[in-house]
Nucleic acid binder design. Sequence first.
DNA 1: CATGAATGAGGGTTCATTCAT
DNA 2: CATGAATGAACCCTCATTCAT
Lengths: 191, 191, 191, 191
Amino acid sequence: MKKNSNNTNNNMKQNILICATKLIAKNGIKNTSLADIAKDVNISKGTLYYHYSSKDDIICDIADSHLHIVNKAVLNCVQNMKTENPHDDTVKFIMQKISTIESTGRVHMYLICEAITGNDTLRERIKVKYIDWRQTLKTEILNSLEDSVENSDALSFLLISIIDGLVVQSLLKTEKIPFENISSFLVKNWF
Amino acid sequence: MKKNSNNTNNNMKQNILICATKLIAKNGIKNTSLADIAKDVNISKGTLYYHYSSKDDIICDIADSHLHIVNKAVLNCVQNMKTENPHDDTVKFIMQKISTIESTGRVHMYLICEAITGNDTLRERIKVKYIDWRQTLKTEILNSLEDSVENSDALSFLLISIIDGLVVQSLLKTEKIPFENISSFLVKNWF
Amino acid sequence: MKKNSNNTNNNMKQNILICATKLIAKNGIKNTSLADIAKDVNISKGTLYYHYSSKDDIICDIADSHLHIVNKAVLNCVQNMKTENPHDDTVKFIMQKISTIESTGRVHMYLICEAITGNDTLRERIKVKYIDWRQTLKTEILNSLEDSVENSDALSFLLISIIDGLVVQSLLKTEKIPFENISSFLVKNWF
Amino acid sequence: MKKNSNNTNNNMKQNILICATKLIAKNGIKNTSLADIAKDVNISKGTLYYHYSSKDDIICDIADSHLHIVNKAVLNCVQNMKTENPHDDTVKFIMQKISTIESTGRVHMYLICEAITGNDTLRERIKVKYIDWRQTLKTEILNSLEDSVENSDALSFLLISIIDGLVVQSLLKTEKIPFENISSFLVKNWF
DNA sequence: CATGAATGAGGGTTCATTCAT
DNA sequence: CATGAATGAACCCTCATTCAT
């Protein structure tokens, strides 16, 4: 059957994707060579090129996968905002994003840096997702908080910024971030 | 005279620094070669190595210079918070940071990515500054708003996050960021 | 039936040959990969290897086919020399060869370059044909012009050279070649 | 002095050029790698790139050098046509071109193949020279033979073609080319 | 002080070829 | 018959770094 073949194929691509993501999360995009990835997957560079036509191709797949993960987190978060009281949601929201940072967060930053360093295809992809996320957040804020349009606009921009900003501080390992403190402040003053 | 020599020396270093910063802001750290920099300064690669012992050395100097600039902005911002009413300050604060982004913001992100990619010396330097800035902000919030310690802690973390987060969105060119909207929201709900 | 199988087989080989020739005429031998050919024929690389044991094998077949075409042209040309007056023949001869150049001519040059780059098998094949053509020409010249042996020898060498040389100039797109002018000159001075 | 440095530099470039030409004459352009050249010059690949910015760059230099050599031969040949009786000149002309073939002729063919395989810069360069040579030949024919414009046109095209064509046959090692025979035929019938 | 020349390790990429299924 | 997957050697090229002069 074709299916088996396809499965093998997909498994290999999946393997490559996982290893590449791992290595890039660790060392950054430019410091991860295709030789590194191939070695980690235990295949030859030639095989790597059989499955991916270029390094950019791999990065795009990583970006897709990453954005998909983040997207699920955002939707999940919005879902919570709908059904429960805002306090716990926000806490959970922030915590969730931040606690999974060490790997996801690094990939996030590397992709952003890659995107703004001339990789316009990548930037466009990320950009679309950011706009999507903000709109989703804004809509939900409008519905659940019955706030003004101006406020929901500002709030949606701010929430996304806060996430990215906290990711930065977390990766720089500046100070222990007082998540509970922050989230309770947010709930008290914003919602 | 030594002095003259030193001046020339410093001028040259300054030149290198300016050109390197310009090129890195444009193309990123990994996409800027020492040959590029030397050519832009109109000196040979050998001369470049006379003034800087390595590429990392140059990046560290760029980081110092960059952090110094940001530091001045932060202090200036705090100064304003002290003397005037918070509303306009915040507006100005945000606007100021964001409007100068295109070049400074890119350097900022590149340095952060470099820092979290194993360049621990650089990360330490940036980390120290971040802690410093947050403390400064927190102290000022405590004094001027006479708020609780918990709130000032949360607020200081949030403010810094917002800046970084807005820089990200600005560089990704996602959507036109409604600065006035955002700042008026902040003043209304936080101060 | 075997026959059917063989036909299919031959059709496939024919297909491969046509596509390969087309691609090589366009891009040259070294710039045409087996992957390119396989894609153009709409088969897999594996299948390609089922029909041809190596790239050289394909090239040899192309050479055979090409030399066969040229051979027919030469014979046709000689045939004309026999039956008609030399003037029009020569014109036709030259024009015919040159007007079909764009594709055939390129393949011709590529095969010659390949032949003199260490592919001795190929060179031998082409060499045999060249000798054959010259002998045919010489014999015909002897018969129809009743010229001396020395003259027919020289003339046959020259005619072949002129063809190849005009092909070169044509492919280099140097100047518009004045075919009528040339052929009338040849007829006037040589025959 | 700068001169010494420049000399060293030029010597190295000259060295590279000589070795590269030698290797390419032997194996063809595509079969000569930069590693091969570097090894032959006894330098590292990096050094090779210090002097030449790309393989195309080297090929262009080879082409320039080659065309210069051929140009000198053409001019020399024309000079002879002016001062002496045509018979010996022509003999000499042909012999000269053909006898130096083994290396120069191969380079000539390889450059032409490279030129018609999409290297338009190279093709333009060669094209310009071909036009130049033909014009020179034509002018000289007009002056020395006091022939008609049409004849000089045809004759100049033919002469150039014959050279290229004989080069092809010589490199294919078809048959021993009867140079004396050919040249005496040419003199008798054309001049 | 300043430089041009040299280097070597490594980068991404291509491709003819093999082979189990 | 036909294929997709795998390979490894080679290719062109980049670049931070060194060093004699």
